[in-house]
Simulated assay, not measured.
Amino acid sequence: MVVEGTVGTGGEPESSDSMRAFGAVVQALREHAGLTREELAERIGYSKHMVASVELGRRMPDTPFVDGTEEATGNTGAVRAAAAHLARQPGLAAWFRQWARMEREAIALYTYECRLVPGLLQTEAYARAVSLSVPPIPDEDDLNQRVAARLARQELMSTRRKPPSEFSFIIEQAVLERHTGGEDVTREQLDHLLRVIDRHWNVQLQIMPLRQPDHPGLDGPLQLLESPENRWFGYSEGQENGRLISAPKELSILQQRYGKLRTQALTPEDSRSLLERMRGAL
């Protein structure tokens, strides 16, 4: 099974040549403008680590990063021209790439998960544990690409994005009770979820309790996003496949299900309390 769009036997990672080429362009223009990585990061509202990762070809830049860097380096058009060739994302399954591109532009993203902690909320250790749990076991390079791709997507939740996107997550309590990767990994993952709640005012996290006799999510995980043009799309993923959903009737059904999930899950406040109790029990 492939989870959260990572690559398994059904989708090989693509070359990162275009990412390295884009990073080289950014570095050359930054240095020509007389900026350090820290100075560029401050001007465009990202971390120094993000700038370094993009320049080294390790992270896929989002649109605000490209636009900010273009402006900060003199509006020559070179950054946007180089970004036009960034079609490849190593570590992501072929069927997930279109959704990943849409995520970068979305103004709202809703996620219900009953299998694992959503990729946007995973720690590095949890991401590695997930990848190593599902056969076939990846080699070290493949594993590193999967984890890097997943962590890179988390820049989407930054409140520094203009405008910041809205995120809603509903996670089954059973996912956290599973202790994927062991107690140390689980402890770190719970701490991370609590930090996300504290630091990201644009993120709402709800836990679906273990006992819920009337459950609208029995058909499996689902994702919904709203585009900048206020159009809605859905995505569902199973073993070795994923499907983009744009038909209005299907989207209406998914929105009804997500709406009911929201009413049946614990409130954000009660979800936080449950996470704290689970953390304290470890």
Rank of each mutant, 00 (worst) to 15 (best):
E4Y: 07
E4V: 10
E4T: 08
T6W: 06
T9N: 11
G10P: 02
G10I: 02
G11I: 03
S15V: 11
M19I: 06
R20N: 05
A21Q: 13
F22T: 00
A24M: 11
A28H: 11
R30T: 02
R37K: 15
E38C: 04
R43Y: 05
I44S: 01
I44E: 00
I44L: 03
H49C: 09
V51H: 05
V51Q: 08
V51T: 11
G57V: 01
R58N: 04
R59W: 10
R59A: 15
D62V: 14
F65W: 13
T69W: 03
E70R: 03
A72S: 11
T73Q: 07
G77V: 06
A82D: 08
L86R: 01
L86Y: 00
R88D: 15
R88Q: 15
Q89F: 10
Q89H: 12
A93F: 09
W95K: 02
R97L: 08
R97G: 01
M102R: 10
A106H: 01
I107E: 01
I107D: 01
T111W: 08
Y112Q: 02
L116G: 07
L116Y: 03
V117N: 02
V117F: 09
P118W: 10
L120P: 00
L120V: 04
L121A: 07
Y126I: 04
P136C: 09
D139K: 06
D141A: 14
N144W: 04
N144R: 14
N144S: 12
N144L: 12
Q145K: 09
R150C: 05
L151I: 15
A152R: 00
Q154G: 08
R161G: 06
P163D: 04
P164G: 05
S168K: 04
F169I: 01
I170A: 01
I171K: 00
I171Y: 00
E172K: 06
E172H: 06
A174N: 10
E177Y: 06
R178Y: 05
D184G: 06
V185H: 09
T186H: 07
Q189G: 04
Q189T: 12
D191E: 12
L193H: 09
H200L: 13
H200I: 08
Q206C: 03
L210S: 12
R211D: 14
P213A: 10
G220K: 11
L224F: 05
L225S: 00
N230R: 15
W232A: 07
F233P: 00
Y235G: 00
E237M: 05
G238A: 10
R243G: 05
S246E: 15
S246A: 15
K249V: 13
K249G: 04
I253T: 14
K260M: 15
Q264S: 13
L266D: 10
T267G: 09
P268T: 02
R272Y: 03
S273C: 12
G280N: 13
G280Y: 07
L282H: 09
